[in-house]
Structure formats: structure tokens, C-alpha cells
């Protein structure tokens, strides 16, 4: 077993608004190993960002609330430590990249200063050392370090995202959470950014949680995958297992909906129905209304995690009792 960097146990996060209770994350458990890239895949609204925010303890607090669960990092439960301790971890040991680079940077501060801010928060060095490190980070992400006094609006989208990455990695975190880092960028820039993340990962020994809805990106960059649906992790395993030996009907549907260059098709294959309203989730297996293999039991019994192959877990009643020999 590889050494674990992060362990999430039975996390439940809910948003309580005046109108309704939204169950965003329902009892998920996840482990990230050292130097591993875990892909967190799911449609919009599946709960991926909320999970990431929960790890950072940045869930907007009215209306969001972490109801229960534990998140272990370096021996401590992140949900129970003090805010002061958490601040030391944010940006320093665990950092996060958000989806939209256009709005992620403060428009009135120069980019160099924004990178320097995170360095000075976590490294006790002098201002000169911080400046040197900032320059180094800028070069590392491929931005001319003479531009450190320029403002965000003077950079393109792709370069802004690179600045964001520089900020995230400046303090050498053990874990980087990247929430759809390339979704807002066009495909060529996407390739660049992903390539850069990969090389930085090797250089810094960082583990990455990569949140995305793009299976292609997952194939490029990840070692493990977790598939999220309606706030639950319904399947998880290595890339090889998931891509070649997928079990959950939702996962199968996801992969099937990708058009294949080699076969001719008249229509794109979609998964029928829509993602359920998180304020009003179905009983039993949350996928049952859309599942082609739905049985009567699925409608009222919640599936438990079943290990169908080494390190390959599925939450589906179809595989109940088919555990592989350990």
C-alpha cells in the first residue's frame, strides 16, 4: 500500500437555504496516496467542487455545513482543527486551483505580489527571498519574470491560469486540488496546462485531486479515478480498471456517450433522464430512475461499496456478493 496523503471518511455536506435542504455530498469516502493523481469525475452538480471546498474548509458557511465525517491529513482531522491551524495548511500544505482563471485573480494587485503573498504567508524567509522565489515560480510556469509587476487584465486566459498554478505550487504543497482547471480554456492551452501540471507534479512530489468532467483529461493525467454521482462516489479504481473493466451502469453510460471515431453511429448515445435535484433525491440507489438495469430492489435499498477487483470499488446492487477474493 502506498502511503496515504489524504483520507476522507464518510463526509456529508449539506446546504441549508430558506427554501430547501440541498444534500450536496452524501457519505463519501476516498483515499489519496502520495504522488498520486486522483481524478474526480462527474457531471455538473454531482458534488465534486463541494468535496474539494470541504477539504479546504472553504464551504461557504451560511448556507453550507459539514454535517459529519472526517478528513485526515498528516495525522489530524482537518474538520476538527482550529481555524488558525487550518490557515497554515491552506496554501501551504494543501492548495487549490479554481475553475475560472478570468476571475480568480485580484484585479488591482500585480501578479507578482499575488504570488508573493502566499509565499510570505507560509515561508518565514525575508522579502528578498520571497521575491526570488516568485521570480522562479513565474519562470517555471513559463511566464517572463519581468512581467511580475503587471496586472491580471494584461494577461490572456491561459497565462492567468498559469499564474494561478504558480500561486498554488509556490509553497510546495503535498496536495493540490485542481477544480476543472482547463475547462475554461481552449484545447491547445489545455494541453499545455496539463503538461505543465504533470511535470510540476514530478518535480515537487505533489499529489493531485483533479476534478473534471472530461474523461480524456483523466486518461492523460490520472492514476486513479473516482466517479461521482448525486453526491456519492459510485465507482473508484485505477485507470486501467475503470477504463477497461467498468462496472457501474452510470460509468458505462458515461463512456458510451463519448463518440467513437472508428464506429459509425446515427445518434449520440446519451444517458436518459437528468441528474436528480439535490434537494429531492430519489430513494434507494440514486441512479435508479435512469438505470437501464434497474431492479425492484434498487428502488429502496441503498447499495454499499463492493470490491469487485483489487482496489476497484462499486456501489451497485448488481454486484452484491460478487467480491473478488482478497
Amino acid at each position: 500500500m502506498h502511503e496515504k496523503v489524504l483520507e476522507i471518511k464518510k463526509l456529508v455536506v449539506r446546504y441549508d437555504t430558506d427554501y430547501e435542504k440541498v444534500e450536496a455530498v452524501n457519505n463519501i469516502s476516498l483515499e489519496i496516496a502520495k504522488k498520486e493523481t486522483m481524478g474526480l469525475v462527474g457531471e455538473t452538480g454531482a458534488g465534486k467542487t463541494t468535496t474539494a471546498l470541504a477539504i479546504m474548509r472553504l464551504v461557504p458557511s451560511p448556507p453550507g455545513k459539514v454535517i459529519s465525517g472526517e478528513i485526515y491529513f498528516e495525522g489530524a482531522d482537518l474538520l476538527k482543527i482550529s481555524e488558525k491551524e487550518m490557515r497554515k495548511i491552506r496554501g501551504g500544505k494543501i492548495s487549490m486551483i479554481f475553475q475560472d482563471p478570468m476571475t480568480a485573480l485580484n484585479p488591482v494587485l500585480p501578479v507578482g505580489e499575488q504570488i508573493m503573498e502566499v509565499i510570505r504567508l507560509h515561508d518565514k524567509g525575508s522579502k528578498a527571498e520571497a521575491t526570488k522565489k516568485t521570480t522562479k515560480m513565474l519562470e517555471l510556469v513559463g511566464i517572463n519574470s519581468e512581467r511580475h509587476n503587471e496586472y491580471p487584465h494584461q494577461f490572456s486566459g491561459g497565462m492567468k491560469q498559469r499564474v494561478v498554478i504558480a500561486i498554488a505550487l509556490a509553497c510546495n504543497p503535498s496536495l493540490l486540488i485542481a477544480d476543472e482547471p482547463t475547462t475554461a480554456l481552449d484545447v491547445t492551452i489545455q494541453a499545455q496546462v496539463l503538461g505543465m501540471m504533470n511535470s510540476l507534479k514530478d518535480e515537487f512530489d505533489t499529489s493531485i485531486i483533479l476534478i473534471t468532467h472530461d474523461l480524456g483529461v483523466v486518461a492523460e493525467v490520472c492514476d486513479h479515478v473516482a466517479i461521482m454521482y448525486a453526491g456519492e462516489i459510485i465507482e473508484t479504481g485505477t485507470i486501467k480498471e475503470i477504463f477497461e473493466n467498468k462496472k457501474h451502469p452510470y460509468t458505462i453510460g458515461l463512456f458510451n456517450s463519448i463518440p467513437d471515431l472508428d464506429t459509425e453511429e446515427d445518434r449520440l448515445q446519451a444517458i436518459s433522464g437528468l441528474m436528480p435535484d439535490p434537494a429531492n433525491l430519489p430513494k434507494g440507489c440514486k441512479f435508479h430512475p435512469r438505470c437501464p438495469k434497474c431492479t425492484a430492489e434498487c428502488k429502496h435499498r441503498v447499495p454499499q461499496n463492493t470490491e469487485v477487483a483489487p482496489e476497484h470499488f462499486v456501489k451497485c446492487l448488481l454486484y452484491k456478493g460478487t467480491e473478488a477474493a482478497k
Binding site: 487550518m86 490557515r87 491552506r90 496554501g91 501551504g92 476571475t103 488591482v108 507560509h122
Partner: peptide, 26 residues
Amino acid sequence: RQDYIRTARAKGQTEWVVVMKHALRN
């Protein structure tokens, strides 16, 4: 409500500085 405030918090910045330096200036 802007995203860059969230970025500032994600850096581990204290709330006071987030409000005074990042939010107020904008």
C-alpha cells in the same frame, strides 16, 4: 462574492487581510 476573494482565502490568508486588502481595495 467574487472568485478572487476565495483565492485569497485558499492561500491561507487571514480574514482581516482578505477584507481590508483584497475586498476593500476593489
